[in-house]
């Protein structure tokens, strides 16, 4: 642990959807360069947790800080925070009416106010990093799921975010395409990107994560480095979950 300001700080964060307690009393601190994997059964609040970090969901209890800025209703420029936080969704969510290149350039041009040529060069740089520069002129529908998800990662990276959030990035993919997306994510981790990934890819968690977080019923039940987490889980609920997903 370093003494610098953490990138993300969540203090006693809670979130309800009607009567459903999606998050309860979440405390989480993420420092720069940390790679965190969040796992847990469906409905445990994993997605809600990371969606609160870029305020796609508003928390209704506790406090969340991104760097020095607190996420509140009163904040002046939410979009200034959002451009520092990249997000990758389960269903890719590319802009279907734009070419791959335009997908990557849109937010750079509109949010970062980047000149066209510079935005283009950055887009091509990240397309090369996700290994599909030859697809630049195509529309999303013309790509495979794995390629679309890599475009989505590149699109988020073009904004040069300080942290990347991944919401089950491989859950919608055919098995043979999962590795090409995970490879890109491993590369990112190696380059020191701060990452929070909701995923059930335990192999990825083992090899990349600094910390694995286990959630159930809106709470963080357990967090530990992957070695401890997999070999010596403390909670009964964690053991049960691990035995279920590692069985096969």
């Amino acid at each position: 642990m370093t003494s610098e300001t953490p990138l993300i700080r969540m203090q006693a964060v809670g979130k309800r959807f009607g009567n459903f307690q999606a998050l309860a009393n979440i405390d989480l601190t993420v420092t720069s360069g940390e790679r965190i994997v969040v796992c847990g059964p469906s409905g445990s609040g994993k997605s809600t947790l990371i969606r609160c970090i870029n305020r796609l969901e508003k928390h209704d209890a506790g406090r969340i800080f991104i760097g020095q800025t607190e996420l509140t209703d009163a904040m002046e420029d939410l979009n200034a925070v959002r451009r520092e936080v990249g997000m990758v969704f389960q269903s890719y969510n590319l802009f279907p009416h734009m070419t791959v290149l335009s997908n990557l350039m849109l937010a750079q041009r509109l949010v970062r106010k980047m000149p066209r040529q510079e935005a283009h060069d950055i887009a091509m740089h990240y397309l090369k990093r996700v290994r599909i520069p030859e697809q630049a002129k195509k529309y999303p529908i013309q790509l495979s799921g794995g390629q679309q998800q890599r475009v989505a990662i590149a699109r988020a990276l073009c904004m040069k975010p300080q942290v990347m959030l991944f919401d089950e990035p491989t859950s919608a993919l055919d098995p043979e395409m999962i590795h090409e997306v995970l490879d890109v994510m491993v590369d990112l981790a190696k380059d020191g990107m701060t990452m929070i990934c909701v995923t059930h890819e335990m192999g990825f968690a083992r090899s990349v994560a600094d910390r694995v977080i286990f959630m159930d019923e809106g709470r963080i039940l357990e967090q530990a480095p992957p070695l401890d987490f997999f070999q010596n889980p403390q909670q009964g609920r964690t053991k049960q979950f691990l035995s279920q997903i590692l069985q096969h």
């Binding site: 451009r83 969510n93 849109l106 949010v111 988020a156």
Partner: peptide, 26 residues
């Protein structure tokens, strides 16, 4: 698609920008 609009939101596009560049053409 709501998810696609959320992606725009997550990239920092304002409400107006999302309406003009994402919602309107689709």
């Amino acid at each position: 698609d709501r998810g696609m609009l959320e992606a725009g939101e997550a990239l920092g596009l304002s409400k107006t920008q999302r309406f003009v560049y994402l919602t309107t053409p689709i």
